[in-house]
Design a protein around this nucleic acid. Structure first.
Lengths: 341, 341
DNA sequence: TAACGACACTTAATCAATACAGAAACGGGC
DNA sequence: GCCCGTTTCTGTATTGATTAAGTGTCGTTA
């Protein structure tokens, strides 16, 4: 527990040189002779000065080596969500390789101002609940990269959600199928529910809406129809919401023969629920997922889903941010034929 | 993308008052009349000044509302480790309730200095690989709380690891048992290996050493013996290390009848390996775990283990830190009788 | 009515650094 | 010996705020 931290000024006085020289010794080696620099550095080591104060550096230099990862959900939820936590892996691996630090931000629109002034940039994952938060971030004169959603004028990392949804639905659907869709955050409601009158399409098209587009296109091409009653809105993959939707949809009459799920978590919940009800998968019920989480490959029967790499998304986002690149990037996905359809 | 951020000085000039008054309007309402304060606040809102620059505040005030969670492993590993990510949940829930932010630190001893100057305190989870990192943090004149390891003079959050290990081993052991222990970070080696000559006990007793004490005491009391050959060192629960140890121990001759594992992850690996080898659990092989992760309750047979709440540990650590309390805290644990012994 | 304290606000030092302009020293060429 | 350019180092304004000390005004009280 060392007290009385040394400042650059103290060190300068002790060594009999100016503060500028000490500063340069640490930051700009070309500004002083190599020998002098070595002297200063070893002297600093000896007296216990570990380099310029970072708080002051941040103020003066205007950057901090800290990147904020802004999360749509609470950290509590995120760390238990396989997709999100894998994304964190990707982001942090790149940041670490560049000597940057990671600040996990999961607060509201107000307290983002606590960090806005000193972080070097933002990676936003998922559309924030709070629209104000997204706006607040977008107003900043700092680099921003979004993942799995769009912010006007900012680069985004995405897969082609529409095409992926179309592809998997096309593979699943047959003539005479009765289709249901379990969607993620389709409307602005805090509970699981069917979509009746709520507007399906918003101006700011989220990835869920893109996926929905894909599903609907495939349904139409297969000569089938679907009404809003058979599209569910789920506010969040985790917790009770998915299970609730699974139970509702499987107890509906007539029971769907194909259920298109916008996440693997949802699909696994449907699968488990179906099996416990004695429904044969895929004979009586076909299920598709989305994401390709590890768990989806371990179930019996294992899931037919769209595999996308969250690690790659995280890496791409971090790289884009650090490179100052402002071009959006579309990552590949692969369809994984499982045993559920 | 707003440019030319306003400063407090700019605002003061525009409103024709001193900078001190603006500052007080935001930070010390008692220092100016309520009416004046209201005027200033609404004026700031109007011209788009969102409050004092945080980087400057951090420098001047010396605190930032940011707490660093220092992790022994890389973030990549942490987010996929159920124990660690649950701890993060606990920590972040308390921090969020107090308006603090969370900085995940998983770097080395050098770059900790990037954050040391401005974070308000440290929560250290698990003994860092790098001893220097622990020392560096301990030297700071900032609050530190440790979880699952000890730093001299700093409060620690722990369960009674020795007693817990003793309890579960006592329950598992019978006369004539052949015992093996799969330990976590017992010595300073990067690979899975048996412990031969390496010193079993170090001065700075880690939780693993406490657990080992408990196991050994139980073994002795049961009238059994164990030599260092039958104690494995595993550098990290995740990855290939546990599997490797499981294979080694199960292929040893004579094969142990009881395996005491210092984490559930390790125990599950042993269980899976044993089942695939056709070994009957618990008839031919008894296994105990440690931690009580969710997954341990879902396997068949499900694990006999020591349940401790990582959420509670995280919460306790954050609360201790924020309260400035310097007393260590011992949390409760419960033995969970499963089907593996 | 002079003294006193409470209130409202300002002045200016301070936090710990960076970076630019300029000074001193040095060396080489003519 | 003088000029010019380079190298090395110093002085100081600047970054954007906080805060202790100080000034002025007003109402109260002896």
């Amino acid at each position: 527990m060392k007290k009385n931290k040394l400042t650059l000024k103290d060190v300068a006085q002790q060594l009999g040189v100016s503060t500028a020289t000490i500063s340069n010794a640490f930051n700009r080696p070309d500004q002083l002779s190599a020998s002098r620099r070595q002297e200063i550095l070893t002297a600093c080591e000896r007296i216990g000065y570990h380099g310029p104060n970072k708080a002051a550096q941040i103020l003066r230099k205007g950057h901090s080596n800290i990147v904020a990862l802004v999360l749509a959900d609470s950290i509590e939820y995120i760390v238990s969500d396989p997709v999100a936590s894998t994304l964190i892996k990707g982001v942090s691996s790149v940041l670490q390789a560049h000597g940057k630090h990671l600040l996990l931000y999961a607060g509201d629109a107000q307290s983002i101002r606590d960090v806005v002034d000193f972080v070097d940039g933002f990676i936003c994952y998922g559309a924030p609940r709070n629209v104000q938060l997204a706006e607040e971030i977008n107003q900043q004169d700092k680099p921003v990269v979004t993942v799995d959603f769009n912010l006007p004028g900012r680069p985004a990392i995405n897969i082609d959600n529409q095409q992926a949804a179309y592809d998997i639905a096309r593979k699943a659907l047959n003539k005479d199928d009765k289709v249901a869709i379990l969607g993620l955050r389709l409307i602005d409601a805090p509970t699981t529910c069917r979509i009746y009158d709520s507007p399906l399409f918003e101006e700011d098209r989220s990835i869920s809406h893109r996926r929905l587009d894909g599903y609907l296109r495939a349904i139409e091409e297969a000569g089938l129809t679907i009404s809003n009653d058979w599209i569910w809105h789920i506010p969040e993959s985790g917790g009770k919401y998915s299970r609730q939707a699974a139970q509702e949809v499987l107890n509906s009459a007539p029971r769907p023969t194909t259920i298109l799920c916008m996440s693997d978590i949802i699909a696994l919940e449907v699968l488990q629920c179906a099996l416990s009800m004695g429904i044969k998968v895929p004979q009586e019920l076909k299920i598709t997922g989305f994401d390709g989480i590890d768990e989806a490959a371990r179930t019996r029967p294992y899931l037919t889903t769209v595999c996308q790499s969250s690690v790659d998304k995280g890496k791409a986002a971090a790289q884009l941010l650090l490179a100052g690149d402002t071009n959006s990037q579309q990552l590949p996905y692969v369809l994984k034929k499982g045993e559920t359809c």
